[in-house]
């Protein structure tokens, strides 16, 4: 019984009531993942499970036995920032920073969804093989991550300049 967290196996908690979020924060002392609402409304607790973004507050840790979890600590470090972390700094993608780990994990999962061709609510053509990386798409796809400081414009800019395919980055910059 183990969950691999940022590449390291960890023992699954004995009490099935323990959420994945509390498991990460209280048992593994990985405090990067934040508890905002603890009811699935804010996205601050977003982590990646086998590369897919999920809400760790609504996940029971025991359900993720055998799965691989990536938290913000697995994305980058203070001395080795992920390019998206640097872009959040460059584009003022935060003020207080509380939602930022969730925003960054969410954005990484989102970029993968676009690459896999997963459509969104604002996608015009459901049959399209390639999903656009437009600001409208990014805003819709990131709507599960709230920022009470109101840094959403900076967040979307940081994501667009970092995770979009190169031709689309040029297009967005020209707009």
């Amino acid at each position: 019984m183990s969950i691999v967290v940022n590449g390291m196996p960890a023992e699954v908690p004995g009490d099935p009531r323990v959420s994945l979020l509390d498991f990460l924060r209280e048992q593994l002392h990985l405090h990067g993942t934040k508890k905002g609402c603890d009811q699935g409304a804010c996205g601050a607790c977003t982590v990646l499970a086998d590369g897919e973004r999920i809400l760790s507050c609504l996940a029971l840790a025991v359900q993720y036995d055998g799965r691989s979890i990536t938290t913000i600590e697995g994305v980058g470090s203070a001395t080795d920032l992920h390019p998206l972390q640097q872009a959040f700094i460059d584009h003022d993608g935060f003020q207080c920073g509380y939602c930022t780990p969730g925003q960054i994990c969410s954005a990484i999962g989102m970029a993968d969804e676009i690459r896999r061709g997963v459509p969104s609510h604002v996608t015009d053509d459901l049959d399209a093989a390639d999903m656009p990386f437009s600001h409208e798409e990014l805003r819709e796809r990131m709507s599960g991550n709230l920022c009470r400081c109101g840094a959403h414009n900076g967040i979307i800019d940081a994501i667009a300049t970092t995770l979009a395919p190169l031709p689309e980055r040029a297009t967005e910059a020209a707009e």
């Binding site: 699935g40 973004r53 609504l58 709507s143 991550n145």
Partner: peptide, 9 residues
């Protein structure tokens, strides 16, 4: 419906 994270779960 919901958010992308919730739809993934």
């Amino acid at each position: 419906g919901a958010s992308a994270q919730i739809r993934n779960m």
